[in-house]
Simulated assay, not measured.
Amino acid sequence: MAIDIGIFLPHAEVPPLEVREAAYHAVDAELDSMWCGDHLARGVPVLDGMLVLATAAAVTECIDIGFAVYLPALRSHVCAAKQIATLQELTGGDRLHLGIGVGDQGSGWDAVGVDPAAREARTDEFLQLLPSLLGGEVTELPDGSSTQLAPSVPVPPVWIGGVSDAALRRAAKYGDGWIAARQGPAEIRAKSEVLRSLAEEQGRPVPRLAAVVHCALSKRPDPRLADGLAREVAETFGVPVEVARGCVVAGSPGQVAEQLAAFAEVGVEKLAVAVNGDWHQSCDLLGEARALLAPQPRC
């Protein structure tokens, strides 16, 4: 069963954990990838995602890194592209997976002087410009000026986040893949059929599938874990508990492996797992679940 299992690095812990050590730990657990979000402020200490991924990549070699998701609309198009190009160059050009999202009302728009109502349009502009900017071409910008970035780098795989109709259309038009969040396998299967139709209308390949999964792990089965995690996810993201319960995974490594396998069965290729509880212990247990799904380590 071909599915990559990755973990969110602990960039929003209290206090923040040491990123380099966490990256080593993810490799030791034989996970496939390390992921990070993109937030200016969340009410708790939070590290910059671009620098977290750069640090983690600098102390590892064969493990992938990814954003789930990066919010380009928080920045100027050129600055965002330059950061991405630099990360792509520093990491060898074949490790970065670029999840792109539009963010929500709490993503920090006021702090950077961006109207949140413009975030979708700004994201679409950025996606249109990204191949030209990363390719080192002279690129005309929306204000009529032009620029050229160097060195040129390959465009990393672009995974469009979001579950709205607009997000699916964006994925079909610009994405190599679609990354779902707070969606169970059944919902992903249904939306993937919509995505297929939209891609056919665009004359583009059907985007690949990835998902962000919230997970609570324990050494032994614990029937309380799933309900507790569902309540936490519901409170954090403002969704009904019954909705959250359908898209979280919890239990022992064997139980979690079985639940993650259901995502693979609907075509999901990559999972970015946000673990609950002690990060190091959860990382080890997630590695055990990964070994049950894909016995061959990546590194």
Score class of each variant (00 low, 15 high):
286 L>G: 09
142 P>H: 04
192 S>G: 13
224 R>A: 14
67 F>P: 06
145 S>G: 13
208 R>M: 10
50 M>D: 04
6 G>A: 04
35 W>I: 06
82 K>L: 04
59 V>H: 01
180 A>F: 13
298 R>F: 02
151 P>W: 04
49 G>H: 12
24 Y>K: 12
17 L>D: 01
202 Q>G: 09
147 T>R: 05
17 L>I: 00
65 I>G: 06
252 S>G: 07
71 L>E: 12
170 R>L: 07
79 C>W: 00
157 P>S: 07
179 I>Q: 04
289 A>H: 03
272 A>N: 01
142 P>F: 02
211 A>E: 09
235 E>H: 08
78 V>C: 08
120 E>Q: 01
205 P>T: 13
75 R>I: 08
265 E>K: 13
288 E>V: 04
247 C>F: 03
200 E>A: 14
182 R>V: 04
225 L>V: 07
21 E>M: 10
50 M>Y: 15
84 I>Y: 04
55 T>R: 09
147 T>D: 02
81 A>V: 03
188 I>W: 07
263 F>H: 11
265 E>I: 00
73 A>V: 10
164 S>P: 03
85 A>F: 03
296 Q>P: 00
169 R>Q: 15
264 A>H: 08
27 V>A: 15
106 G>W: 12
77 H>E: 08
155 V>Q: 07
28 D>I: 02
162 G>P: 12
297 P>K: 09
81 A>S: 09
28 D>N: 10
174 Y>E: 04
212 V>N: 02
199 A>K: 07
206 V>G: 08
250 A>L: 11
29 A>L: 14
137 E>F: 09
22 A>R: 00
291 A>F: 02
207 P>L: 14
23 A>T: 14
245 R>P: 01
66 G>Q: 09
91 T>S: 15
99 G>Y: 05
116 P>I: 11
76 S>A: 04
104 D>I: 06
114 V>R: 13
